[in-house]
């Protein structure tokens, strides 16, 4: 009786110790105070992007010529623009555009870039040289200039902004993943998997890709900030969203004529862009500290 009790106890101890990667991640993530808050901010942004149109106090498209260019006040939380539209409502509705454009373009770029990087690093040879030299050519252009050129070819519009931003993300992802692949492919477990008869495809996606995920996640989160900035810049230049859409970049562009008299028209979307980009960068930094095994247990 006594014996079975102790056995039971030791069994529960073993099950309690069960390792869970998510729990471990959360434990480390909690320690990253700034990144934790930044991630809450991003979570909030995502919620706003989803429910924004339903909670906006005013119609973001409807002009109100009785209240043009009003400063922030009790009626209009963030003031109004030159057509009397409520800036706060436009920011709420516009968050969906900014986030979806940046997420979509970064993920598209990441998927294509990762596949190219894996192929390049894994197979090597002329394929590697071809992919890497092509991305060198892309790197030679300043990011935004390349995006402007692509949009100029494809024509303005949000869809084309997504394509442009994802195209200029591809080479950075390809290079990052290639580096990690080169390292992972020399490991003994990859050789062991080969000695068991695993195919190239399986080794690439089952064994090497997970090794690159850590740096990939960090890079994606940093890249989203860049993408928001790039998409806003394109809209600001009139190459992205059409002026009436409540895109943050387009709002900046509209407001710049009133910079001297009603600076809030520029300030409000500017602050929104600034905070969002900052949050993604801080989260990226935090993720790097948590996911990098070299800095993990310090």
């Amino acid at each position: 009786m006594e014996l079975s009790k102790t056995v039971n106890q030791s069994n529960t101890i073993i099950t309690e110790k069960k390792y869970s990667p998510l729990k471990e991640f959360w434990k480390n993530w909690k320690r990253q105070k700034t990144a934790l808050w930044a991630s809450f901010f991003i979570l909030l942004l995502i919620i706003i992007a989803v429910v924004g149109p339903y909670i906006a106090p005013y119609d973001p498209y409807k002009p109100d010529y009785n209240s043009m260019l009003q400063g922030p006040g009790s009626k209009h939380f963030a003031g109004t623009d030159e057509y009397g539209r409520d800036i706060f409502s436009r920011l709420l509705v516009g968050s969906r555009i900014s986030l979806s454009v940046s997420f979509l373009s970064v993920f598209l770029g990441a998927i294509v870039g990762t596949i190219l990087g894996l192929i390049s690093g894994y197979f090597g040879g002329w394929l590697d040289r071809f992919i890497m030299r092509s991305s060198d050519v892309m790197f030679a252009f300043p990011d935004l200039l390349l995006a402007i050129a692509i949009v100029a070819i494809l024509g303005p519009g949000l869809n084309n902004v997504v394509i442009a931003v994802s195209i200029f993300s591809v080479p950075s992802f390809a290079r990052l993943v290639r580096g990690a692949t080169l390292e992972a492919k020399e490991t003994v477990f990859v050789e062991a998997a080969k000695s068991m008869g695993a195919s190239h495809f399986r080794i690439m996606f089952q064994h090497i890709l997970p090794e690159t995920l850590g740096s990939l996640i960090v890079f994606i989160s940093m890249r989203i900030g860049t993408a928001i900035l790039a998409a806003s810049s394109l809209s600001f230049l009139g190459l992205g969203a059409s002026p009436e859409t409540p895109d943050w970049g387009a709002m900046l562009s509209l407001g710049r004529d009133y910079l001297g008299t009603s600076s809030h028209v520029v300030m409000m979307p500017g602050i929104a862009i600034f905070l969002t980009v900052l949050a993604f960068n801080v989260v990226g930094d935090g993720l790097r500290d948590v996911l990098d095994p070299k800095t993990k247990n310090e």
Partner: peptide, 8 residues
């Protein structure tokens, strides 16, 4: 120690 994939 290294011939098993650490993340699988």
């Amino acid at each position: 120690m290294t011939s098993l994939n650490p993340v699988m």
